[in-house]
Design a protein around this nucleic acid. Structure first.
Lengths: 224, 224
DNA sequence: TGCCCGTCATCTGTATGCAATAATGAGACT
DNA sequence: AGTCTCATTATTGCATACAGATGACGGGCA
């Protein structure tokens, strides 16, 4: 049949990549819930493509750890249930601790300056009290820590874990007072990194995530 | 056309996975040199399959960081430097350190007994000097550490990272003396865990992986 | 009534064909 | 002689077709 109606999208050359991002977003944002089956035919219909690119996207998502795959079985959104939730936050805390520790040792002058500058600027967002804006900054802040390790694999592990926890963290900044507390916790991390105090940075980051964990699990169980 | 001669391999259900491993081995062992083009047709002919599974394998290898991919261009072998070998080993060391530390705190009596028993039994394998047998035990030993954390997500991260490093670690037990050295390093880890000395266990595990890293990178770069 | 087995429907795995893009080489023009 | 352009070719991207596997349903038998 004539797929002439292909909306120039094809010409981006990266149909599969777009699907990977789209599906990853759906998983991370909670539109697709853990355990949900990702059958190829439905996805193909949904994206108006054939099963071939869908399969490739699913394989990549599998390699990224976002979906589980077994032979002759549908891909499923990886499980993040309550039992797992605590484990994921603990792992996240460990990872953030490592990243902060390594960042304290390895960030170059530019990275340190950027970290400090952006951190100070975020004070404005706290004052403004706009959770969405701060959430965006917060993501960037943590990415900075991951990149500061100068270790691509740690960056990947941290990003992946963070992505899977995202749905559970979404609402945390709505809790009153969480914004300024978050800023203070960031401040401890930043200060330690600027001092190149690896141990303190690691501990501060670990504690920061642990606190987020507490704030988030409260929210998580409420979703039923 | 009749692909009747498919050598039952097809029936394993994991054709693509086998190809991933095979190609990864070829890259790591130097049969395929960095920068070399991996065109789908040649690979398909080589493995006696069609381009479809080849494409999926290449996509997975791309996600693993072993090959580079750009739209409408052949996949190319990344060099191990780009494949962030060092980064992966460092991350592995950190993960193993965490797992050993948590295991020291959390393993129950049964787990500790099993760990000790199997560790002692492995002495036989060292004496026998059979690398394959020890390699199998070694995998199980590390899995024990991961499970001992009682944290499914850490288990997953560690397993995943370990799987990606597997091709690089293949030859290490062939290095003379590595077997008994490995046993000694394991011994330090086990002893610390049995004493519930979290800090010592974490450090011992970190060092253990670092040593493997050195042994493996020597092997990897030797191919130049 | 309950269990077992066979048939069928659904879905994944792989092959093949067609369209589109990038690489290559020949020819013409400066 | 060098370079730019265009045509040809090699190769990727996607769609479709077919084969094999898995799970569900229903009928037969104890």
């Amino acid at each position: 049949m004539t797929q002439a109606k292909r909306k120039t999208v094809t010409r981006t050359g990266t149909t599969v990549e777009q699907m990977v991002r789209a599906i990853a977003d759906m998983i991370v944002s909670g539109i697709m819930v853990p355990g949900e089956r990702l059958d190829e035919l439905s996805l193909a219909a949904r994206f108006e493509v054939s099963r071939t690119p869908v399969r490739e996207a699913l394989r990549e998502l599998g390699a990224m750890g976002l979906v589980g795959r077994e032979p002759n079985r549908s891909a499923i959104v990886k499980n993040v249930e309550e039992a797992h939730l605590h484990a994921m936050f603990e792992a996240m805390a460990e990872l953030e601790g490592i990243c902060a520790r390594l960042s304290a040792m390895r960030m170059d002058a530019d990275e340190r300056h950027a970290l400090e500058r952006e951190h100070r600027a975020s004070m404005q967002l706290v004052r403004a009290g706009v959770p969405e804006g701060y959430a965006a900054y917060n993501t960037e802040f943590h990415n900075r820590l991951y990149r500061g390790t100068h270790n691509d694999h740690l960056l990947e592990l941290a990003t992946q874990t963070r992505a899977r926890l995202a749905p559970f963290r979404h609402a945390q900044f709505r809790l009153s007072g969480r914004l300024s507390k978050s800023y203070e916790e960031h401040d401890r991390i930043v200060t330690a990194i600027l001092r190149a105090d690896a141990t303190a940075a690691g501990k501060a980051a670990y504690d920061h995530v642990s606190i987020v964990s507490d704030a988030s699990t409260v929210f998580a169980v409420a979703r039923g």
